[in-house]
Design a protein around this nucleic acid. Structure first.
Lengths: 106, 106
DNA sequence: TTGACAGGCAGGCAAACACCTGCATAACTG
DNA sequence: CAGTTATGCAGGTGTTTGCCTGCCTGTCAA
């Protein structure tokens, strides 16, 4: 259920770029992020909002500024769960493939 | 550049479900997948098309049937690259966060 | 207090998306 | 061959998305 927000948040190149920027320099203000983003401040705000809803960034107000911090935890959780699932079936998948091919040319 | 297709392909719950189904039983036909999908065959076809463009599934024709096989490799590549990037900066991120907080209340 | 700066909120618009219906094609089966 | 089965293709529709403009609120500094 939460996974969906994470996947959808990562679906946009701009949002992935924002995560990259925060990965390089954490705790940037909205204005700082806008300076690297080639789009309107309002658009950046919207993207950051989605990232925040997906729990990928957390924010903190300091006076009239808003600082943005990256939160990689949901990334780890979602990815590891997925990797684990496919890793687990990896040998099985190869086996199925082999069987399917042999069904064709026994 | 290829990453974008992978992320976009994973953004839809239906497509993630298709990957799940193929993970359970690899090499299913379009019809078999449709039986588990609560949407029109044409919609499923469209989703499978996107998954194929993202190199997450490969197909093979057998007579009038089309078999679908999952390809977890791009998943590993993309995820591992991302995990590595954030993992690498993990301590750095915590450090930045601490500094930002101390800047506020020294 | 006044002006400049940082950000929030509302609405509009075009493109993308997810879903569908309807018809066409290819391949097994009797 | 005729009928059924498995899939392909074209197009149409309602919603979501990404981006914008325009205006409002709150904060700092002279």
């Amino acid at each position: 259920m939460e996974d969906d927000k994470v996947f959808k948040a990562l679906a946009d190149p701009g949002r992935r770029r924002l995560l990259d920027l925060l990965c390089e320099t954490n705790g940037q203000t909205l204005g700082q992020l806008c300076a690297s983003m080639q789009m309107t401040r309002q658009s950046v705000t919207q993207h950051l909002g989605l990232l925040e809803e997906a729990n990928l960034v957390s924010t903190e107000r300091r006076g009239r500024e808003k600082l943005h911090f990256i939160n990689p935890v949901p990334l780890y959780e979602v990815f590891h769960r997925w990797i684990a699932k496919f890793e687990e079936n990896r040998l099985g998948l190869l086996h199925d493939l082999k069987q399917a091919l042999e069904r064709d040319a026994p």
